[in-house]
């Protein structure tokens, strides 16, 4: 192909691609507008909570396409401002995620309820750990008989590469002010004091999770503690234990939300956009390999409500 033709082909591709992307974005913005118009007293808005939950850096610009708690909280906030929306179905297919992200979404669901919206959670394959924490804020939880749920607990994984560093001749120099500033360091074994400190943090995060389960599911502390040992359940087991309200699929959840909101007949489903990692996602994740540097970053002290 001649150089000129190649240039023109690139220009034309960019134009057509931008038109398609532009139309997609306009459609995305139109959804909330559409929800505002159509919902009234007969529609149910669906919000998707898919994949591991974490807080993305920014919720505006290109970053809003990346999956993250900010996108979900921003959607829920928009919905809470629309008075005509009476019911929301939160479609969950997630193993949970970082504590901060989970709690932000949980609070936003509570805010929705404060504004008088009925919230029903529908779980797909997985709705465990942090995702179940979020579900506890809903009015009702619906799951399939085989949905993996539960995993109520907190996790913090920290590596110790002291031996590896010694073998390859890496020596880490730490200059610190504050006795525990390098807590969780990769380059040395954890001291008993540090372990105790981190266990305290874990215990507190666990209590917060337990509190949410007790409040959301109307369980006594003793009952809740028995099922909150990190174990997973199927949807059917969870129903027997009182962790979910009904066995059913997505459509059942929509119908239930409609019924709770007093919508007569079959409610209209208005979907907010699903996460769109697209090309950006490919560039940001798929072509990346984990380096030692990445592993060291991953080793930071971070609390997670996540199914392993």
């Amino acid at each position: 192909m001649k150089k000129e033709n190649l240039i023109i082909a690139i220009i034309l591709f960019l134009c057509i691609f931008s038109i398609v992307m532009g139309m997609y974005l306009i459609g995305e913005r139109a959804v909330v507008g559409k929800a505002r118009i159509l919902t009234g007293k007969k529609g149910v808005v669906v919000v998707y909570l898919y994949g591991p939950l974490s807080i993305s850096q920014r919720a505006s610009g290109w970053a809003r396409f990346l999956p993250g708690a900010d996108r979900v909280t921003s959607e829920l906030r928009k919905i809470s401002e629309i008075a005509t929306i009476k019911a929301v179905v939160l479609r969950i297919n997630s193993p949970g995620g970082s504590v901060g992200a989970v709690q932000e979404i949980y609070e936003e669901v509570n805010r929705l309820k404060e504004k008088g919206k009925k919230v029903v959670v529908s779980m797909g394959d997985v709705g465990a750990s942090g995702a179940y924490y979020v579900a506890c804020a809903a009015d009702k939880i619906v799951a399939n008989p085989g949905t993996i749920t539960g995993s109520i607990g907190v996790l913090m994984s920290l590596g110790n590469m002291e031996e590896l560093f010694r073998k390859v001749g890496i020596k880490v120099e730490v200059i610190k002010r504050g006795k525990h500033k390098d807590i969780g360091s990769l380059s040395r074994e954890m001291t008993p004091e540090e372990r105790k400190l981190l266990q305290g943090v874990i215990d507190d995060a666990y209590d917060q999770f337990l509190q949410a389960v007790m409040e959301g599911r109307n369980l006594k502390k003793r009952e809740a503690e028995k099922i909150a040992q990190g174990q997973v359940f199927t949807g059917r087991q969870a129903k027997n234990l009182g962790l979910i309200d009904e066995i059913g699929n997505f459509q059942d959840a929509v119908r239930l939300a409609g019924k709770l909101a007093g919508i007569p007949g079959e409610p209209k489903v208005i979907e907010l956009p699903k996460p769109f990692p697209g090309i950006l996602g490919i560039f940001s994740n798929h072509f990346r390999t984990n380096t030692l540097q990445d592993l060291m970053k991953e080793n930071s002290v971070r609390l997670e409500y996540i199914l392993q």
């Binding site: 134009c15 931008s18 038109i19 532009g22 974005l25 306009i26 913005r29 507008g33 559409k34």
Partner: peptide, 23 residues
């Protein structure tokens, strides 16, 4: 025509919100 319509709707919709029909 399509490019102008898409571009302007996209830009304006950021400030005003938009319905699908607006495009």
């Amino acid at each position: 025509v399509i490019s102008i319509a898409t571009g302007t709707t996209l830009f304006v919709s950021r400030f005003t919100g938009v319905r699908r029909v607006a495009l």
